[in-house]
Write a protein that binds this DNA or RNA. Structure first.
Length: 421
RNA sequence: GGAGGCGUCGCCUAGUCCGGUCUAUGGCGCCCGCCUGCUAAGCGGGUUUGGGGCUACAACCCCAUCGAGGGUUCAAAUCCCUCCGCCUCCGCCA
Protein backbone atom coordinates (compact mmCIF):
# COMPACT_ATOMS: atom_id res chain seq x y z
CA UNK A 1 0.00 0.00 0.00
CA UNK A 2 1.36 3.39 -0.93
CA UNK A 3 1.67 6.27 1.50
CA UNK A 4 -1.75 7.96 1.71
CA UNK A 5 0.02 11.26 2.23
CA UNK A 6 1.84 10.93 -1.07
CA UNK A 7 -1.47 10.41 -2.80
CA UNK A 8 -3.04 13.40 -1.09
CA UNK A 9 -0.10 15.78 -1.40
CA UNK A 10 1.28 14.84 -4.79
CA UNK A 11 -1.23 12.85 -6.83
CA UNK A 12 0.54 13.77 -10.05
CA UNK A 13 3.58 11.84 -8.96
CA UNK A 14 1.40 8.79 -8.45
CA UNK A 15 -0.15 9.35 -11.88
CA UNK A 16 3.30 9.51 -13.43
CA UNK A 17 4.26 6.33 -11.61
CA UNK A 18 1.21 4.57 -13.03
CA UNK A 19 2.17 5.71 -16.52
CA UNK A 20 5.71 4.44 -16.06
CA UNK A 21 4.32 0.98 -15.35
CA UNK A 22 2.01 1.31 -18.33
CA UNK A 23 -1.08 1.43 -16.11
CA UNK A 24 -4.15 3.66 -16.11
CA UNK A 25 -4.38 6.46 -13.53
CA UNK A 26 -8.10 5.92 -12.96
CA UNK A 27 -7.32 4.35 -9.61
CA UNK A 28 -5.67 7.60 -8.52
CA UNK A 29 -8.83 9.63 -9.03
CA UNK A 30 -10.89 6.92 -7.45
CA UNK A 31 -8.64 6.83 -4.39
CA UNK A 32 -8.60 10.62 -4.07
CA UNK A 33 -12.39 10.77 -4.16
CA UNK A 34 -12.61 7.92 -1.68
CA UNK A 35 -10.19 9.71 0.62
CA UNK A 36 -12.22 12.90 0.88
CA UNK A 37 -15.47 10.96 1.21
CA UNK A 38 -13.92 8.93 3.98
CA UNK A 39 -12.70 11.96 5.92
CA UNK A 40 -16.10 13.56 5.64
CA UNK A 41 -17.73 10.39 6.95
CA UNK A 42 -15.27 10.16 9.83
CA UNK A 43 -15.87 13.76 10.89
CA UNK A 44 -19.63 13.21 10.76
CA UNK A 45 -19.53 10.05 12.84
CA UNK A 46 -17.13 11.45 15.41
CA UNK A 47 -19.20 14.58 15.94
CA UNK A 48 -22.33 12.51 16.55
CA UNK A 49 -20.51 10.09 18.78
CA UNK A 50 -19.05 12.89 20.91
CA UNK A 51 -22.54 14.26 21.41
CA UNK A 52 -23.82 10.86 22.41
CA UNK A 53 -21.06 10.40 24.93
CA UNK A 54 -21.69 13.77 26.54
CA UNK A 55 -25.37 12.98 26.82
CA UNK A 56 -24.61 9.59 28.26
CA UNK A 57 -22.67 11.20 31.08
CA UNK A 58 -25.62 13.40 31.91
CA UNK A 59 -27.92 10.39 32.01
CA UNK A 60 -25.63 8.68 34.45
CA UNK A 61 -25.86 11.57 36.87
CA UNK A 62 -29.57 12.30 36.49
CA UNK A 63 -32.27 10.90 38.76
CA UNK A 64 -35.97 10.07 38.52
CA UNK A 65 -38.09 11.99 36.04
CA UNK A 66 -35.22 14.01 34.72
CA UNK A 67 -33.45 10.78 33.86
CA UNK A 68 -36.46 9.46 31.98
CA UNK A 69 -36.66 12.59 29.89
CA UNK A 70 -32.98 12.47 29.02
CA UNK A 71 -33.24 8.80 28.10
CA UNK A 72 -35.90 9.46 25.53
CA UNK A 73 -33.82 12.23 24.03
CA UNK A 74 -30.63 10.25 23.88
CA UNK A 75 -32.28 7.26 22.30
CA UNK A 76 -32.69 9.21 19.09
CA UNK A 77 -29.03 10.17 19.11
CA UNK A 78 -28.04 6.53 19.29
CA UNK A 79 -29.79 5.71 16.05
CA UNK A 80 -28.01 8.55 14.29
CA UNK A 81 -24.66 7.39 15.59
CA UNK A 82 -25.28 3.90 14.34
CA UNK A 83 -26.14 5.18 10.89
CA UNK A 84 -23.10 7.46 10.75
CA UNK A 85 -20.88 4.62 11.85
CA UNK A 86 -22.13 2.37 9.06
CA UNK A 87 -21.54 5.16 6.56
CA UNK A 88 -18.01 5.65 7.88
CA UNK A 89 -17.25 1.95 7.65
CA UNK A 90 -18.46 1.84 4.05
CA UNK A 91 -16.39 4.88 3.14
CA UNK A 92 -13.28 3.40 4.75
CA UNK A 93 -13.75 0.10 2.94
CA UNK A 94 -14.04 1.89 -0.39
CA UNK A 95 -10.93 3.95 0.39
CA UNK A 96 -9.02 0.88 1.44
CA UNK A 97 -9.87 -1.00 -1.71
CA UNK A 98 -8.99 1.98 -3.88
CA UNK A 99 -5.58 2.68 -2.37
CA UNK A 100 -4.64 -0.98 -2.29
CA UNK A 101 -5.18 -1.12 -6.02
CA UNK A 102 -2.23 1.20 -6.55
CA UNK A 103 1.14 -0.58 -6.90
CA UNK A 104 4.38 0.70 -5.41
CA UNK A 105 5.71 3.54 -7.56
CA UNK A 106 8.87 2.41 -9.32
CA UNK A 107 12.24 3.93 -8.46
CA UNK A 108 13.39 6.79 -10.67
CA UNK A 109 16.31 4.60 -11.72
CA UNK A 110 14.10 1.70 -12.83
CA UNK A 111 13.65 1.56 -16.60
CA UNK A 112 10.19 2.49 -17.89
CA UNK A 113 8.14 0.00 -19.87
CA UNK A 114 7.39 -3.70 -19.74
CA UNK A 115 9.02 -7.11 -19.64
CA UNK A 116 11.36 -6.48 -22.60
CA UNK A 117 12.52 -3.06 -21.49
CA UNK A 118 15.03 -4.23 -18.89
CA UNK A 119 18.54 -2.82 -18.82
CA UNK A 120 21.57 -5.13 -18.60
CA UNK A 121 23.75 -3.84 -15.78
CA UNK A 122 26.63 -6.25 -16.16
CA UNK A 123 27.61 -9.61 -17.58
CA UNK A 124 29.84 -11.93 -15.60
CA UNK A 125 32.06 -14.75 -16.88
CA UNK A 126 32.20 -16.07 -20.38
CA UNK A 127 29.75 -18.13 -22.33
CA UNK A 128 30.60 -21.82 -21.94
CA UNK A 129 31.79 -23.36 -25.21
CA UNK A 130 31.60 -27.06 -25.98
CA UNK A 131 33.50 -29.00 -28.62
CA UNK A 132 30.65 -31.50 -28.60
CA UNK A 133 26.87 -31.24 -28.79
CA UNK A 134 25.84 -30.25 -25.23
CA UNK A 135 22.96 -32.12 -23.67
CA UNK A 136 20.09 -30.41 -21.90
CA UNK A 137 19.35 -30.95 -18.21
CA UNK A 138 16.65 -33.53 -18.92
CA UNK A 139 19.06 -35.76 -20.81
CA UNK A 140 21.80 -35.22 -18.27
CA UNK A 141 19.41 -35.89 -15.43
CA UNK A 142 18.39 -39.18 -16.97
CA UNK A 143 22.00 -40.27 -17.52
CA UNK A 144 22.95 -39.34 -13.95
CA UNK A 145 19.76 -40.64 -12.37
CA UNK A 146 19.25 -37.18 -10.86
CA UNK A 147 15.50 -36.83 -11.25
CA UNK A 148 12.48 -38.82 -12.29
CA UNK A 149 10.05 -36.84 -14.41
CA UNK A 150 7.81 -39.71 -15.50
CA UNK A 151 7.01 -40.82 -12.00
CA UNK A 152 6.58 -37.20 -10.91
CA UNK A 153 3.85 -36.89 -13.51
CA UNK A 154 2.36 -40.23 -12.52
CA UNK A 155 2.13 -39.34 -8.85
CA UNK A 156 1.44 -35.58 -8.90
CA UNK A 157 0.82 -34.55 -12.51
CA UNK A 158 2.56 -32.36 -15.04
CA UNK A 159 5.30 -30.03 -13.80
CA UNK A 160 6.15 -32.41 -10.93
CA UNK A 161 9.19 -34.62 -10.49
CA UNK A 162 11.20 -36.57 -7.94
CA UNK A 163 14.80 -35.74 -7.15
CA UNK A 164 16.62 -39.03 -6.93
CA UNK A 165 20.10 -40.24 -6.07
CA UNK A 166 22.75 -37.69 -6.98
CA UNK A 167 19.98 -35.20 -7.80
CA UNK A 168 18.65 -35.38 -4.27
CA UNK A 169 22.18 -35.07 -2.94
CA UNK A 170 22.87 -32.06 -5.14
CA UNK A 171 19.63 -30.50 -3.95
CA UNK A 172 20.70 -30.89 -0.37
CA UNK A 173 24.19 -29.63 -1.18
CA UNK A 174 22.85 -26.46 -2.81
CA UNK A 175 20.57 -25.72 0.11
CA UNK A 176 23.31 -26.36 2.63
CA UNK A 177 25.82 -24.20 0.78
CA UNK A 178 23.29 -21.39 0.48
CA UNK A 179 22.41 -21.58 4.16
CA UNK A 180 26.08 -21.62 5.16
CA UNK A 181 26.75 -18.55 3.04
CA UNK A 182 23.75 -16.79 4.53
CA UNK A 183 24.89 -17.72 8.01
CA UNK A 184 28.40 -16.43 7.30
CA UNK A 185 26.89 -13.17 6.07
CA UNK A 186 25.07 -12.66 9.34
CA UNK A 187 21.61 -13.89 8.41
CA UNK A 188 19.39 -15.67 10.91
CA UNK A 189 18.50 -19.07 9.52
CA UNK A 190 14.79 -19.85 9.32
CA UNK A 191 12.62 -22.72 8.21
CA UNK A 192 9.28 -21.15 7.37
CA UNK A 193 5.74 -22.51 6.98
CA UNK A 194 4.66 -22.98 3.38
CA UNK A 195 1.01 -22.56 4.33
CA UNK A 196 -0.19 -19.11 5.39
CA UNK A 197 -3.39 -17.19 6.09
CA UNK A 198 -4.83 -14.69 3.63
CA UNK A 199 -3.48 -11.76 5.63
CA UNK A 200 0.09 -12.78 4.82
CA UNK A 201 -0.70 -13.41 1.18
CA UNK A 202 -2.60 -10.15 0.81
CA UNK A 203 -0.01 -8.17 2.74
CA UNK A 204 2.80 -9.19 0.45
CA UNK A 205 0.76 -8.31 -2.61
CA UNK A 206 0.15 -11.80 -3.95
CA UNK A 207 -3.63 -11.72 -3.91
CA UNK A 208 -3.83 -8.88 -6.42
CA UNK A 209 -2.77 -9.39 -9.99
CA UNK A 210 -0.87 -12.56 -9.05
CA UNK A 211 -3.84 -14.27 -7.36
CA UNK A 212 -4.35 -16.70 -10.22
CA UNK A 213 -0.96 -18.19 -9.56
CA UNK A 214 -1.69 -19.06 -5.92
CA UNK A 215 -2.94 -22.39 -4.58
CA UNK A 216 -5.73 -22.06 -2.04
CA UNK A 217 -6.72 -24.75 0.42
CA UNK A 218 -10.34 -25.58 -0.10
CA UNK A 219 -12.67 -24.61 2.70
CA UNK A 220 -9.97 -22.88 4.74
CA UNK A 221 -8.37 -19.47 4.90
CA UNK A 222 -5.01 -20.94 3.91
CA UNK A 223 -2.75 -20.58 0.92
CA UNK A 224 0.37 -22.37 -0.27
CA UNK A 225 3.16 -19.83 -0.58
CA UNK A 226 4.97 -19.26 -3.85
CA UNK A 227 8.00 -18.01 -1.94
CA UNK A 228 9.01 -17.76 1.71
CA UNK A 229 9.00 -14.00 1.23
CA UNK A 230 5.35 -14.35 2.28
CA UNK A 231 5.75 -15.97 5.72
CA UNK A 232 8.87 -13.89 6.37
CA UNK A 233 7.19 -10.58 5.60
CA UNK A 234 4.27 -11.53 7.81
CA UNK A 235 6.65 -12.76 10.53
CA UNK A 236 6.88 -9.32 12.12
CA UNK A 237 3.40 -8.11 11.16
CA UNK A 238 1.68 -5.86 13.73
CA UNK A 239 5.00 -5.21 15.44
CA UNK A 240 7.02 -2.13 16.25
CA UNK A 241 10.63 -3.15 15.70
CA UNK A 242 13.46 -1.87 17.85
CA UNK A 243 15.47 0.46 15.61
CA UNK A 244 18.72 -0.69 17.20
CA UNK A 245 18.02 -4.23 15.94
CA UNK A 246 17.77 -3.16 12.29
CA UNK A 247 18.57 -4.44 9.80
CA UNK A 248 16.93 -7.78 10.61
CA UNK A 249 18.22 -10.30 8.09
CA UNK A 250 16.62 -13.72 7.66
CA UNK A 251 17.42 -16.56 5.30
CA UNK A 252 14.50 -18.93 5.09
CA UNK A 253 14.07 -22.34 3.57
CA UNK A 254 10.65 -23.40 2.39
CA UNK A 255 8.92 -25.23 -0.37
CA UNK A 256 7.28 -22.99 -2.96
CA UNK A 257 4.13 -23.69 -4.92
CA UNK A 258 2.93 -21.98 -8.07
CA UNK A 259 -0.02 -22.75 -10.27
CA UNK A 260 1.78 -21.32 -13.29
CA UNK A 261 -1.57 -20.20 -14.63
CA UNK A 262 -1.21 -18.62 -18.04
CA UNK A 263 2.08 -20.33 -18.78
CA UNK A 264 0.60 -23.35 -20.53
CA UNK A 265 3.00 -24.67 -23.08
CA UNK A 266 5.83 -22.49 -21.75
CA UNK A 267 8.99 -24.22 -20.51
CA UNK A 268 7.23 -27.56 -20.35
CA UNK A 269 10.41 -29.59 -20.56
CA UNK A 270 12.18 -30.75 -17.43
CA UNK A 271 12.26 -29.02 -14.08
CA UNK A 272 12.63 -25.41 -15.22
CA UNK A 273 9.06 -24.24 -14.61
CA UNK A 274 7.26 -26.41 -12.07
CA UNK A 275 4.41 -26.31 -9.57
CA UNK A 276 6.66 -27.02 -6.64
CA UNK A 277 10.30 -26.33 -5.81
CA UNK A 278 12.39 -25.49 -2.76
CA UNK A 279 14.16 -22.26 -2.10
CA UNK A 280 16.39 -20.39 0.30
CA UNK A 281 15.19 -16.81 0.37
CA UNK A 282 16.84 -13.78 1.94
CA UNK A 283 14.54 -11.30 3.63
CA UNK A 284 15.47 -8.02 5.29
CA UNK A 285 13.69 -5.48 7.44
CA UNK A 286 15.41 -2.10 7.53
CA UNK A 287 14.66 1.60 7.27
CA UNK A 288 13.52 3.06 3.97
CA UNK A 289 16.64 5.27 3.93
CA UNK A 290 18.91 2.23 4.30
CA UNK A 291 16.93 0.06 1.90
CA UNK A 292 18.66 1.22 -1.27
CA UNK A 293 22.11 0.26 -0.03
CA UNK A 294 20.72 -2.97 1.41
CA UNK A 295 19.26 -3.83 -1.98
CA UNK A 296 22.75 -3.61 -3.46
CA UNK A 297 24.04 -5.88 -0.70
CA UNK A 298 21.36 -8.48 -1.43
CA UNK A 299 22.36 -8.38 -5.08
CA UNK A 300 26.01 -8.82 -4.10
CA UNK A 301 25.14 -11.90 -2.00
CA UNK A 302 23.19 -13.36 -4.90
CA UNK A 303 26.18 -12.82 -7.16
CA UNK A 304 28.39 -14.49 -4.58
CA UNK A 305 26.19 -17.57 -4.87
CA UNK A 306 26.20 -17.49 -8.67
CA UNK A 307 29.97 -17.11 -8.63
CA UNK A 308 30.30 -20.09 -6.31
CA UNK A 309 28.55 -22.21 -8.92
CA UNK A 310 30.94 -20.86 -11.57
CA UNK A 311 28.13 -19.77 -13.86
CA UNK A 312 28.02 -17.32 -16.74
CA UNK A 313 25.32 -14.79 -15.97
CA UNK A 314 24.14 -11.23 -16.32
CA UNK A 315 22.38 -8.82 -13.98
CA UNK A 316 19.36 -6.93 -15.25
CA UNK A 317 17.47 -3.92 -13.95
CA UNK A 318 13.84 -4.96 -14.35
CA UNK A 319 11.52 -2.43 -16.02
CA UNK A 320 8.72 -0.73 -14.07
CA UNK A 321 5.91 -2.64 -15.73
CA UNK A 322 7.45 -5.99 -14.79
CA UNK A 323 8.10 -5.27 -11.10
CA UNK A 324 5.04 -6.83 -9.58
CA UNK A 325 2.77 -5.00 -7.18
CA UNK A 326 5.10 -4.53 -4.24
CA UNK A 327 8.54 -3.81 -5.65
CA UNK A 328 9.98 -0.38 -6.16
CA UNK A 329 13.02 -1.80 -7.93
CA UNK A 330 14.14 -5.28 -8.89
CA UNK A 331 17.37 -6.89 -10.08
CA UNK A 332 17.44 -10.35 -11.62
CA UNK A 333 20.47 -12.57 -12.08
CA UNK A 334 20.04 -14.51 -15.28
CA UNK A 335 22.29 -17.46 -15.96
CA UNK A 336 23.27 -18.80 -19.33
CA UNK A 337 21.36 -21.99 -20.12
CA UNK A 338 23.38 -23.79 -22.77
CA UNK A 339 20.55 -25.89 -24.21
CA UNK A 340 18.35 -22.82 -24.64
CA UNK A 341 21.10 -20.55 -25.88
CA UNK A 342 19.94 -17.70 -23.70
CA UNK A 343 19.96 -16.17 -20.23
CA UNK A 344 17.21 -17.23 -17.83
CA UNK A 345 16.22 -15.88 -14.43
CA UNK A 346 17.79 -17.71 -11.50
CA UNK A 347 17.52 -15.15 -8.75
CA UNK A 348 15.59 -11.96 -8.17
CA UNK A 349 15.89 -9.30 -5.52
CA UNK A 350 13.30 -6.62 -4.80
CA UNK A 351 13.17 -3.52 -2.68
CA UNK A 352 9.57 -3.17 -1.57
CA UNK A 353 10.33 -0.04 0.48
CA UNK A 354 7.44 0.53 2.92
CA UNK A 355 4.76 -0.90 0.62
CA UNK A 356 4.40 -4.31 2.28
CA UNK A 357 5.07 -3.03 5.78
CA UNK A 358 2.20 -0.58 5.54
CA UNK A 359 -0.20 -3.39 4.68
CA UNK A 360 1.27 -5.68 7.31
CA UNK A 361 1.67 -2.90 9.88
CA UNK A 362 5.37 -3.24 10.59
CA UNK A 363 7.00 -0.14 12.04
CA UNK A 364 9.94 1.21 13.93
CA UNK A 365 10.25 4.33 16.04
CA UNK A 366 11.46 7.38 14.13
CA UNK A 367 12.32 10.94 15.16
CA UNK A 368 8.66 11.86 15.52
CA UNK A 369 6.48 8.85 16.05
CA UNK A 370 6.49 5.51 14.31
CA UNK A 371 7.43 4.93 10.68
CA UNK A 372 6.91 1.95 8.43
CA UNK A 373 10.05 -0.08 7.78
CA UNK A 374 11.30 -1.19 4.39
CA UNK A 375 11.20 -4.85 3.40
CA UNK A 376 13.50 -6.44 0.85
CA UNK A 377 13.72 -9.93 -0.51
CA UNK A 378 16.13 -11.83 -2.68
CA UNK A 379 16.55 -15.37 -3.89
CA UNK A 380 19.67 -16.94 -2.57
CA UNK A 381 19.09 -20.39 -4.00
CA UNK A 382 16.03 -21.74 -5.69
CA UNK A 383 16.92 -25.37 -6.15
CA UNK A 384 15.85 -26.20 -9.68
CA UNK A 385 17.22 -23.50 -11.91
CA UNK A 386 20.69 -23.39 -10.36
CA UNK A 387 20.70 -27.18 -10.71
CA UNK A 388 19.88 -26.89 -14.41
CA UNK A 389 22.49 -24.19 -14.97
CA UNK A 390 25.21 -26.07 -13.20
CA UNK A 391 24.50 -29.41 -14.89
CA UNK A 392 24.43 -27.87 -18.34
CA UNK A 393 27.38 -25.51 -17.79
CA UNK A 394 29.74 -28.06 -16.28
CA UNK A 395 28.84 -31.08 -18.41
CA UNK A 396 31.46 -33.14 -20.23
CA UNK A 397 31.21 -35.07 -23.47
CA UNK A 398 30.52 -38.41 -21.76
CA UNK A 399 27.60 -36.97 -19.82
CA UNK A 400 29.54 -36.56 -16.61
CA UNK A 401 29.39 -33.25 -14.77
CA UNK A 402 32.30 -31.51 -13.05
CA UNK A 403 31.30 -30.27 -9.59
CA UNK A 404 32.16 -26.59 -8.94
CA UNK A 405 34.88 -26.26 -6.30
CA UNK A 406 32.70 -24.55 -3.72
CA UNK A 407 30.07 -27.27 -3.83
CA UNK A 408 32.47 -30.22 -3.37
CA UNK A 409 32.60 -30.09 0.43
CA UNK A 410 28.83 -30.53 0.43
CA UNK A 411 29.09 -33.71 -1.63
CA UNK A 412 31.74 -35.43 0.42
CA UNK A 413 34.49 -34.06 -1.79
CA UNK A 414 32.98 -35.40 -5.00
CA UNK A 415 34.67 -33.80 -8.03
CA UNK A 416 32.94 -35.52 -10.90
CA UNK A 417 29.38 -36.78 -11.19
CA UNK A 418 29.45 -39.80 -13.46
CA UNK A 419 26.59 -41.24 -15.52
CA UNK A 420 24.96 -44.40 -14.19
CA UNK A 421 26.50 -47.53 -15.64
C1' G B 1 -11.23 -34.37 18.72
C1' G B 2 -13.27 -33.91 24.27
C1' A B 3 -13.24 -31.08 29.17
C1' G B 4 -11.68 -26.84 31.78
C1' G B 5 -8.92 -22.18 32.54
C1' C B 6 -7.03 -17.64 30.59
C1' G B 7 -6.26 -13.16 27.10
C1' U B 8 -6.27 -5.33 30.21
C1' C B 9 -2.14 0.74 26.93
C1' G B 10 6.61 -2.45 26.86
C1' C B 11 6.41 -6.31 31.29
C1' C B 12 3.47 -7.55 35.67
C1' U B 13 -1.21 -6.16 37.64
C1' A B 14 -6.43 -3.87 39.78
C1' G B 15 -11.17 -3.68 37.72
C1' U B 16 -15.27 -8.09 35.03
C1' C B 17 -19.75 -11.59 39.59
C1' C B 18 -23.58 -6.55 40.57
C1' G B 19 -22.97 -2.01 33.05
C1' G B 20 -22.73 4.58 34.30
C1' U B 21 -16.99 10.30 37.23
C1' C B 22 -13.02 3.59 34.22
C1' U B 23 -11.46 10.08 31.42
C1' A B 24 -8.69 1.92 32.85
C1' U B 25 -5.56 1.11 39.07
C1' G B 26 -0.85 0.23 41.05
C1' G B 27 4.20 -1.59 40.49
C1' C B 28 8.56 -2.37 37.30
C1' G B 29 11.10 -0.50 33.21
C1' C B 30 11.97 3.78 30.29
C1' C B 31 12.19 9.39 29.36
C1' C B 32 12.50 14.59 31.30
C1' G B 33 13.47 17.70 35.48
C1' C B 34 14.96 18.67 40.72
C1' C B 35 18.37 17.34 44.40
C1' U B 36 23.42 15.60 44.62
C1' G B 37 31.60 15.89 44.21
C1' C B 38 29.90 11.51 40.60
C1' U B 39 26.60 7.39 40.64
C1' A B 40 22.75 5.26 43.34
C1' A B 41 18.76 6.50 46.46
C1' G B 42 14.97 10.26 47.09
C1' C B 43 11.34 13.86 45.04
C1' G B 44 8.14 15.85 40.88
C1' G B 45 6.26 15.05 36.02
C1' G B 46 5.68 12.09 31.66
C1' U B 47 5.19 7.26 29.16
C1' U B 48 -0.41 2.42 24.19
C1' U B 49 -1.41 2.72 19.27
C1' G B 50 -4.28 4.34 15.12
C1' G B 51 -7.36 8.07 13.03
C1' G B 52 -9.94 12.95 12.31
C1' G B 53 -10.05 18.38 13.02
C1' C B 54 -7.00 22.69 13.33
C1' U B 55 -2.22 23.72 11.96
C1' A B 56 4.07 25.08 11.17
C1' C B 57 3.38 17.64 9.66
C1' A B 58 3.91 21.99 16.65
C1' A B 59 0.56 22.96 20.67
C1' C B 60 -4.40 21.87 21.37
C1' C B 61 -9.37 19.50 20.70
C1' C B 62 -12.00 15.13 19.35
C1' C B 63 -12.93 9.72 17.99
C1' A B 64 -11.50 4.73 18.36
C1' U B 65 -8.50 1.11 21.00
C1' C B 66 -9.10 -3.80 27.43
C1' G B 67 -7.29 -10.84 21.86
C1' A B 68 -10.72 -10.11 17.00
C1' G B 69 -15.60 -9.48 15.09
C1' G B 70 -20.79 -9.06 15.92
C1' G B 71 -25.07 -8.30 19.35
C1' U B 72 -28.02 -6.27 23.69
C1' U B 73 -28.40 -1.18 25.87
C1' C B 74 -29.42 5.70 26.25
C1' A B 75 -24.55 3.69 27.94
C1' A B 76 -20.08 -2.28 27.52
C1' A B 77 -13.19 -3.81 29.85
C1' U B 78 -17.83 -5.43 32.49
C1' C B 79 -23.77 -8.87 29.81
C1' C B 80 -24.71 -12.37 25.25
C1' C B 81 -22.90 -14.88 20.58
C1' U B 82 -19.06 -16.34 17.05
C1' C B 83 -14.02 -16.72 16.02
C1' C B 84 -8.61 -16.60 17.16
C1' G B 85 -4.49 -17.52 20.39
C1' C B 86 -2.17 -19.49 24.90
C1' C B 87 -2.18 -22.92 29.23
C1' U B 88 -3.82 -27.65 31.91
C1' C B 89 -5.89 -32.56 31.59
C1' C B 90 -7.83 -36.64 28.39
C1' G B 91 -7.91 -39.07 23.52
C1' C B 92 -5.29 -39.73 18.85
C1' C B 93 -0.74 -39.26 16.22
C1' A B 94 4.51 -38.28 12.87
Amino acid sequence: MIDPRLLRDDPDRVRAAQAKRGLSDDVVDRALAADSARRQAIADFEAKRAEQKASGARVAKAQGEEKQALLAQVKELAAGVKEAEAARNAAEAEWDEAIRAIPNPAADEAPAGGEDDFVVLETIGTKPEFDFEPRDHVELGAMLGAFDLERGAKVSGSRFYFYTGIGARLHRALVNMAMDMAHANGFTEVVAPALVKSRAMEGTGFLGQAADDVYRIEGQDLYLVGTSEVPLAAYHSDEILDGAQLPLRYAAFSSCFRKEAGSHGKDTRGIFRVHWFDKVEMFVYTTVEESYAEHQRLLAWEKEFMDALELHYRVIDVAAGDLGTSAQRKFDCEAWIASQGRFRELTSTSNCTDFQSRRLDIRTRGESGTVNVATLNGTLCSTNRPMIALLETHQNEDGSVTVPQALRPYLGGLELIKPLA
